[in-house]
Each structure stands twice: as structure tokens, then as C-alpha cells.
């Protein structure tokens, strides 16, 4: 399968953030959810992908091209949605369009108008008066109006109300219909991913933990609950991290089947949420570092 984004052995340290030997591949035609706690390096990675930052070492390839030689070709095909306001505050959407439109060869005015109508965006109000959700819709409108093949979103749903988050997911579903678009988005609202993400890429402390099909996570990982007497040095090896209390233990395993065989009916196995995985991985990381 074709990769739209390929990061290989990227190292970057800046402002106290570090990305270490990061290798990520994002597959064409799918939605990849990019998760990790605060300070895990999500924004840094997205900035590296957008060439807003340059890596200290390693290689970045987008659509099979590198930024050194093909910066403009690459960016012609990318649409971006950021968490922060990136518009001139005193301009209206209509004026912003006049500035952004000439940058793109594939600009489609009809598509722009279509999404302005669909999102009910005001063309003649200053950008600074728009709500966060509106600005996000505006960014998305610009991304869709030049038929971007790769849409990169940094925390697009943070600060949005649940109704609009749901609407956004519907829009993304529509986009994915013909299979030639790729979406890569970071979020810490992991429940948004349940409905749309095909792959999950998880980073922690600037390191790549895994990239997996979403359903594989359910197949491989489990939350295990049982009594403390089941734990010993050997069985504890099966867990990423364990939370012990007086009433028993709760742990995360990446070997659901093995644990099921090992403990049989003596434990309860539950499907973990992405939050469980993030929480326990962080805990486990602290234990072993």
C-alpha cells in the first residue's frame, strides 16, 4: 500500500521538546489518528511534516517527494487545519480568500462557495469575530477548495462542541468516499477517533510507540482485572503497566490471547480505550525508564 507520508529516523530537539528516531508512515486513502499526551511531540511532528521545522537528522518524504526539491509541489497538494488562528484577524473571509486563492493552481471557486454555504460561514465578517469552530470550518474550506489530497489537522476538534465534532466526522467520511484522499490528524479527544480512524499512530516522549489498524488494538490489547494473588514476577511480565489497589489489580496487556490462556477465568478481560492505552503506556514508561 502506498504511503503518503514517510518519516524515517527523524531526530529533532527544540524548545525542550525532543523527537527521537521517529519513523512514521501514513497510508494513502485512510484516516490516521495521531495520539499522544501533552508534550509527546505531536505538534512538533506535524510541524516537521509541514516543513515549518527542519529535522536535525533523518528524512521526510511526502507523496514520495522531499521538501528540499519539491516544496511547492508538495504543498500544492496539502490542506491544513491548525489548532490556532492562522488568519489575518482584521480581514474578512472573502478577503482571506483573495490572499489564499492565488497560491493554488487547483483552486475551485465553486467548491469554495459550496462549503461556505454548507458550513454557513459569513463572508463579510472579520476573522477575529468568528468562533473557534467557524475558524476551523474556514480552514477546512480552504483545504477543500483546492482539492487537497492530504489533509493534515492539528487538534481540529479541541474546543469544539460535541455536535460540531460529530458534524466534522460526517464531513470527513464524505471526503473519504473515493479513496484518493488521506487524512492525518492529531487529537487528544480519543473518542472522536472511534468513528473515523482507520489507523492509530501513538507517540510518547518523542518516540513512536506503534501504528496499527484500529481493530487490531482491540484484538491485541486488553485491560485485565483480577485479584492480587495472581501476580508474581513471571505473570507481571505480561503487562505494560499494573495499577494495584487493596481490592485487586488492573493492568494493560498487549498480548490479550496469551493472558487469556494464562489466567483463564480467574481474571476479567475488557477492551481498552485509547485513553487506557495512553495512560498505562505512560505509567509503564515511567517504570522502566
Amino acid at each position: 500500500m502506498e504511503n503518503v507520508i514517510e518519516l524515517q529516523h527523524i531526530n529533532k530537539s527544540f524548545n525542550g521538546f525532543q523527537v527521537k528516531d521517529l519513523s512514521i508512515a501514513v497510508k494513502k486513502g485512510y484516516v490516521t489518528g495521531f495520539i499522544g499526551g501533552n508534550g509527546a511531540g505531536k505538534s512538533t511532528t506535524i510541524k516537521l511534516i509541514m516543513n515549518l521545522l527542519q529535522q536535525d537528522s533523518g528524512s521526510i518524504s511526502i507523496f514520495g517527494m522531499n521538501y528540499m526539491q519539491h516544496e511547492k509541489e508538495i504543498k500544492q497538494r496539502i490542506g491544513f487545519v491548525y489548532d490556532e488562528n492562522i488568519f489575518y484577524e482584521n480581514l474578512t473571509l472573502k478577503e482571506m480568500k483573495k490572499i489564499i486563492q492565488p497560491a493554488y493552481k487547483n483552486w475551485d471557486d465553486k467548491a469554495f462557495q459550496y462549503f461556505v454555504d454548507q458550513f454557513e460561514l459569513p463572508l463579510n465578517k472579520k476573522m477575529k469575530t468568528l468562533s473557534k469552530g467557524m475558524k476551523m470550518k474556514a480552514s477546512l474550506t480552504f483545504a477543500l477548495a483546492h482539492h487537497a489530497e492530504l489533509i493534515i489537522m492539528d487538534e481540529p476538534t479541541s474546543g469544539l462542541d460535541p455536535i460540531f465534532r460529530r458534524e466534522l466526522l460526517n464531513i470527513l467520511h464524505d471526503l473519504m468516499q473515493n479513496g484518493d484522499k488521506t487524512i492525518f490528524f492529531s487529537t487528544h479527544i480519543t473518542t472522536d477517533l472511534d468513528r473515523i480512524a482507520d489507523y492509530i499512530t501513538f507517540i510518547q516522549n518523542g518516540k513512536h510507540m506503534f501504528t496499527k489498524e484500529f481493530y487490531k488494538i482491540e484484538e491485541e490489547y486488553a485491560i485485565v482485572k483480577g485479584t492480587l494473588d495472581l501476580l508474581d514476577r513471571e505473570t507481571e511480565q505480561e503487562f505494560i503497566a499494573i495499577r494495584k489497589t487493596n481490592s485487586g489489580f488492573e493492568a494493560l496487556t498487549a498480548h490479550k490471547n496469551r493472558v487469556a490462556n494464562l489466567f483463564g477465568d480467574t481474571v476479567i478481560l475488557e477492551n481498552p480505550t485509547l485513553e487506557d492505552i495512553m495512560y498505562y503506556s505512560k505509567k509503564g514508561g515511567e517504570l522502566y525508564v
Binding site: M50, N51, E71, K72, K75, Y82, E84, F87, I100
Partner: peptide, 18 residues
């Protein structure tokens, strides 16, 4: 001075300009 803000730099550098 209009282009000086970080967020405007992010916009300009995300558009297809070098």
C-alpha cells in the same frame, strides 16, 4: 509588522511558497 506574528508565518509557510 502585519506578517510578523508566528501564526501568519505558519499560514504563509503552509501555503505553497518557499
Amino acid at each position: 509588522s502585519l506578517d510578523e506574528k508566528d501564526n501568519i508565518n505558519i499560514l504563509l509557510n503552509s501555503l505553497p511558497y518557499t
